[in-house]
Amino acid sequence: MDKPLYHLVPENSWLSHKQSRTPYFPPTYQQDGFIHLTKDANFLVGVANNFYTSKDPWEWICLRIDPRKLTSEVRYEPAAPVGDTAPPDGWKDGAAQAPVFPHLYGTIDFDAVAKEHRVERDAETGSFLSVEGVT
Rank of each mutant, 00 (worst) to 15 (best):
109 D>I: 00
70 L>K: 06
44 L>T: 03
86 A>F: 08
24 Y>G: 01
42 N>G: 15
32 D>C: 04
107 T>S: 13
24 Y>L: 07
117 H>Y: 06
33 G>M: 01
41 A>M: 08
64 R>Q: 15
31 Q>H: 09
100 V>L: 14
81 P>K: 03
43 F>I: 02
35 I>N: 06
128 F>H: 00
46 G>P: 07
48 A>F: 05
12 N>F: 11
116 E>C: 13
118 R>M: 10
105 Y>W: 04
84 D>N: 13
59 E>G: 09
99 P>E: 08
98 A>P: 02
123 A>N: 09
17 H>I: 00
134 V>M: 13
63 L>H: 09
41 A>I: 02
17 H>N: 15
15 L>N: 08
88 P>T: 00
42 N>S: 15
82 V>G: 08
16 S>Y: 04
35 I>V: 09
134 V>P: 07
63 L>A: 10
73 E>H: 07
122 D>F: 11
80 A>G: 08
106 G>Q: 00
80 A>F: 08
8 L>M: 14
89 D>L: 11
127 S>N: 14
74 V>C: 11
114 A>V: 08
62 C>W: 05
65 I>H: 13
22 T>Y: 15
17 H>P: 03
38 T>N: 12
1 M>Q: 12
126 G>Y: 01
24 Y>N: 02
97 Q>K: 14
4 P>E: 12
103 H>V: 00
38 T>V: 05
60 W>P: 05
85 T>L: 14
100 V>T: 12
41 A>P: 05
59 E>A: 12
45 V>L: 13
24 Y>R: 05
89 D>T: 03
111 D>K: 11
24 Y>Q: 02
55 K>Y: 08
11 E>T: 05
45 V>M: 10
60 W>A: 13
17 H>M: 02
98 A>M: 03
8 L>D: 05
81 P>M: 03
56 D>R: 13
61 I>S: 13
125 T>N: 01
60 W>R: 13
130 S>D: 10
82 V>F: 11
127 S>K: 15
117 H>V: 04
51 F>G: 02
102 P>K: 03
80 A>D: 12
